[in-house]
Write a protein that binds this DNA or RNA. Structure first.
Length: 606
RNA sequence: GGCUCCGUAGCUCAAUUGGAUAGAGCAACGCUCUUCUAAAGCGUAGGUUACUGGUUCGAACCCAGUCGGAGUCACCA
């Protein structure tokens, strides 16, 4: 009896037929775990039946309860509260659930899906180091990968590296102008931070130039002729920055020139570009390692930015796309509730959309992925809607399996992170802070070796981020994220550690627990354990790892309470000892398994 | 301005997808370590689920409107 919910639905349908001579479908019934304040394990909600059966919910609940209790030996009691039928299952049923978990170590995994899935995440720019926003992205991507694997999918992890464009040219230019041949080694800096410093230097120099320019006659004239007369001077020039960069800035011209030289394959520029990017990659690699993530394949924008043109050609031929008089190519997405979108400029060069079109096709060809998940912040919701609608219109075989795992921005208690104001939380700095916090907390404890501290600190950081529903914007409070108590990663680790400690002391135990009748707390724990598979299944279906995080926390919490109330090693009988040791071992494994899906490791002591 | 998303305890988040008395943690105040690890447990306090109306046996969740916030609406990436 692996799926108890289904069994309960079945017996209810059977009962309705028997008592009311009516046919209902499983969709008419809702069975949920019983609320803690009521007696029972599962609750059948009968309100929805009142109309078809022409009887009041309490009456239906009462007669169904009677039927279920009479016809199923695994039901020990039923109780009606309003229209809710609370069903208690027998102790022998729960005992057999434990047996099954011991025999079936994979009981927690969802039904095997042989589908091929590709997950794209992280996808950084190469002009500066990773920050807090990337961490949320990476943790979500990694957890998605892990849970799809657990559900039996064949999963590939990829990222697309934005290694070209004006941004990296800015870093290159300022290093060339002011760097005096420094390297990350000579400067004693982590190499991606080193490159990021030169980007910041460019922005500083540019700002200087811009501020000076604002006093020129030309600038005054532009300001006086502005369309929005109500804008103050400071506000106007804040908005005008991009245009200044593109039209008047000397540094801007230099950077754009460099981009042109890059596109023309100028050897010196390419060499510089390669050197600076290699520094960035070395730095990223270090950060990925600290976060415990890796990839199967990296796509570089410098390789893919010209892709997609053949799809545009093909689409034109099939009249899916259309050409304007100026030669630009468009697609009409009005049917999908969107707009007309550009695919190719009048001069034949591609845009972001073109590239994404080509990359999706390439991935499909390379991996045969039936499903592709893009982990990208929600500011690009519209872009992905358009992309998917377009691919669907084009009729690609993988169109149905595209999914944008859209997540909300990470904000600080004082508001949005702004690079201009230096409020961006750097990924490496953040990791250092949590590790230091973990080390401080461990200094007064018995087990404080570096490996344990690393696991605890990373657990605090990762859990803090992953527990929040991805779709929601989240506030990241650095102080709260290093907390090791309460609803945190270390709290869950601690439950695991307590279990390991007991198991070490207990040693081997092979006695039977058949004679033992589990108490209420143990039934509840078994009930929770048996829901694990369902939770992971939902997390996969909804692309929501936070469900797993919340499950692990709830299980740990329940265990901590149990730990306090029941002394496993002082059990009243051999059978009780045997039962409890098995139970806590399964709980420990469940905690470890679920946390592993989130990329969180368990220490054996802490 | 159009479109999309969001608004739950002082703060950060839940709520099994429309079910029972809306739950946790942090912060505050009590209590519990000679007893398997106190990174823990127990208790007190904290709510008109932004507001108004509607649908329903039942609404934080669905519908309409109002207020507030975010994102987006580029021949940018």
């Amino acid at each position: 009896m692996t799926d108890i919910l289904k069994e309960i639905v079945n017996v209810a349908i059977e009962g309705v037929k028997e008592i009311y001579q009516a046919d209902i479908s499983p969709g008419d019934l809702l069975v949920t775990p019983t609320k803690k304040e009521h007696k029972g394990d599962f609750t059948l909600v009968t309100f929805s039946l009142a109309k078809t059966l022409r009887q009041s919910p309490p009456q239906i609940a009462a007669s169904l309860g009677e039927y279920i209790l009479r016809s199923r030996s695994w039901v020990s009691d039923t109780e009606v509260v309003q229209g809710f039928l609370n069903i208690s299952l027998s102790t022998s049923y729960w005992s057999s659930v434990l047996d099954e978990m011991v025999k079936q170590p994979d009981y927690w995994k969802p039904v095997h899906q042989p589908e091929k899935v590709l997950v794209e995440f992280s996808s950084p720019n190469t002009n500066k180091p990773l920050h807090l926003g990337h961490i949320r992205n990476i943790l979500l991507g990694w957890a998605t990968y892990k849970m799809f694997v657990a559900a039996g999918y064949d999963v590939k992890r990829v990222q697309i590296v934005n290694d070209r464009g004006i941004a990296i040219c800015k870093s290159m230019l300022s290093w060339k102008n002011f760097g005096e041949g420094q390297t990350p080694e000579s400067a004693g800096m982590k190499s991606d931070h080193f490159v990021g410093e030169w980007y910041v230097r460019f922005e500083k120099e540019f700002q200087k130039e811009y501020s000076a320019w604002q006093h020129s006659d030309l600038a005054k004239e532009i300001f006086n002729n502005r369309k929005e007369k109500e804008l103050a001077e400071s506000e106007f020039f804040k908005n005008y920055k991009n245009q200044y960069f593109n039209i008047y800035s000397g540094l801007g011209a230099e950077a754009k020139e460099m981009l042109l030289r890059w596109e023309a394959h100028d050897p010196e520029t390419i060499q510089l570009w390669k050197k600076m990017n290699s520094w960035v990659y070395a730095g990223f690699e270090e950060t990925y390692k600290k976060l415990g993530v890796e990839f199967d394949k990296l796509y570089f924008e410098s390789d893919t930015y010209l892709l997609g043109k053949d799809i545009v050609e093909e689409g034109l031929k099939r009249n899916v796309f259309y050409k304007k008089d100026d030669g630009s190519v468009w697609v009409d997405l009005i049917d999908a509730g969107l707009d007309h979108k550009l695919l190719l400029r009048g001069d034949g060069t591609s845009v972001y959309m073109t590239q994404d079109l080509g990359t999706a096709q390439k991935r499909y060809e390379e991996f045969g992925a039936e499903r592709m998940v893009y982990v990208v912040a929600d500011e690009q919701n519209y872009h992905f809607q358009a992309l998917f609608a377009m691919i669907d219109k084009y009729g690609a075989p993988y169109a149905r399996g595209l999914h944008h795992l859209s997540y909300g921005m990470v904000e600080l208690p004082e508001g949005k992170m702004k690079s201009r104001e230096g409020t961006v939380v750097d990924a490496d700095d953040l990791i250092d802070v949590v590790l230091k916090e973990a080390a401080d907390a461990a200094s007064e404890r018995e087990y404080n070796d570096a490996e344990v501290i690393r696991k605890i600190g990373m657990a605090a950081l990762k859990f803090f981020i992953i527990k929040v529903d991805p779709r929601k914007r989240m506030v990241f409070d650095p102080k709260a994220s290093v907390d090791l108590q309460g609803q945190t990663g270390p709290y869950i680790q601690n439950a695991y550690v307590r279990i390991q400690s007991i198991l070490r002391k207990a040693g081997e135990n092979n006695t039977s627990h058949e004679a033992y009748e589990p108490i209420e707390d143990e039934k509840l724990l078994l009930n929770m354990l048996s829901q694990c598979r369902q939770v992971i299944d939902s997390a996969v279906k909804e692309y929501n790892p936070a469900l797993i995080a919340n499950y692990a926390y709830a299980l740990a919490k329940e265990y901590h309470r149990y730990y306090h109330d029941v002394k496993v090693l002082h059990a009243e009988s051999e059978a009780a000892l045997s039962f409890r040791l098995k139970l806590i071992r399964i709980i420990g494994e469940s905690l470890r398994n679920t946390m592993d899906l989130l990329g969180i490791e368990m220490p054996d002591r802490m």
